[in-house]
Nucleic acid binder design. Sequence first.
DNA 1: AGACAATTAAATGTCTGACAAATGAAAATT
DNA 2: AATTTTCATTTGTCAGACATTTAATTGTCT
Lengths: 245, 245
Amino acid sequence: MKIDPDSSVDLSIQIASAIRDAIIDGTLPVDERLPSEQELCEHFSVSRSSVREALKRLGAQSLIRTQRGATGGAFVNRLTYAAAHGQQITTSTLLLSMNEVSFSTACEARYALESACARLAAQRRTADHVATMRAEAYKQAQPGLTDEAFCASDVAFHRALVDAADNDVMSYQLAGAVEAMQPLMNMITFSARSRERIVALHNDIATALDDQDADKICELLNELSSYTNSLAESVFAERDALRGQ
Amino acid sequence: MKIDPDSSVDLSIQIASAIRDAIIDGTLPVDERLPSEQELCEHFSVSRSSVREALKRLGAQSLIRTQRGATGGAFVNRLTYAAAHGQQITTSTLLLSMNEVSFSTACEARYALESACARLAAQRRTADHVATMRAEAYKQAQPGLTDEAFCASDVAFHRALVDAADNDVMSYQLAGAVEAMQPLMNMITFSARSRERIVALHNDIATALDDQDADKICELLNELSSYTNSLAESVFAERDALRGQ
DNA sequence: AGACAATTAAATGTCTGACAAATGAAAATT
DNA sequence: AATTTTCATTTGTCAGACATTTAATTGTCT
């Protein structure tokens, strides 16, 4: 890919694109070392600043990593599920917060996607998954738990359900959806009574998973979805009422 | 957020994080102009290069845009569904290509997630969605269509099904999953007979959607999933056989 | 006064050169 | 042989300069 210094497009963008394309089409395989910054300067006929800015762009997308020292340089990163996952969460979180996505829309999406895992999870669940879910439900029942800790445990619970489906691609997709919702969930204050209700549903879900009863899980997820939604609605209604004063 | 020049973490990373956090927590609202590079240098007590590299990182994540000129500068970007979607596809595509994700795993995830839309889509579908799907199915039946065009139309078909669920968050999530699979799908050569079978299933799905029969849609999606999988398996088996010669 | 042209100021984009810091390899020393 | 020292390479950071873009300002003419 060639660089056009007269283009209206920034050099660092052009250079980053060229290298990115080489990575995507396999010209630069995983763990391959890129030419040094000096060599890239000569190759593209640009200054080191432009090359460096291009490399930072690629670094921000986890496409490369850099290492200092004699044998250092920039290396093509193997994109891990964890890294991709982290990026997806950042993106999804921002998307939700910047676009005034309604709670009900996000909630609906989350539980609908989660139900998709239910069938597979019911088939493939191991004792470990069920145990994790029960442990989280137990934690959620502890008095004195902060709302944030409650939400974090909620994420862990659902994460275990998703992982039970034993499909890496699905875990990656779903975990992003579930975790991106957490800032929205954190806006809810959970009363002792509402927590009790949620924990009960969680325990029922764990049991249904143990029994490999997919339909039951879906039914319970639906219930959880509408309950969460109604909780959110009352919180928002209260907030709006206070604002109206 | 403070910057530590003695940290082992690169300055541009620290600066980018600080600004990113300010965007995420709302301190820097959408379309707000960031301080000029010069001002950021003074604020963080670093050189302009470091500030610029940090801004490039944020730019690569679509968090900011920059404009030259008198009233120019860096502005907080409103993250659109389209931009988020594009990033997700790049990430997912790389993830799938770099991690030797098996076709069956990706395929399973895709159809499972798509089934999650089916119920909502059945409730909310409009005549437009059904018409789009029928039009794509018709296109797919044309002889002389390249495999690539066939796959592209396939994506458009499923995209319409997802959009019928009328949930932006879900469309965003699902479209990413469906489109990221396209490079994998493109590896399959579709014979006339297999196309015929797929088009028939597509038409049946369109009909089931029109009839608002969610169960039927799920059943047909499952059928499509196993058929696609068997096609892929035979392609891979043939390829491996050739390789073994 | 209004329309148009030239100037100016502010901002990002690019280049150059320098030094700091990390790091592994080679050389020197014990 | 083991350890230490030196050294070359590479990325990270800094400073300053100039180019380019852009909108506001100023000046000029009708």
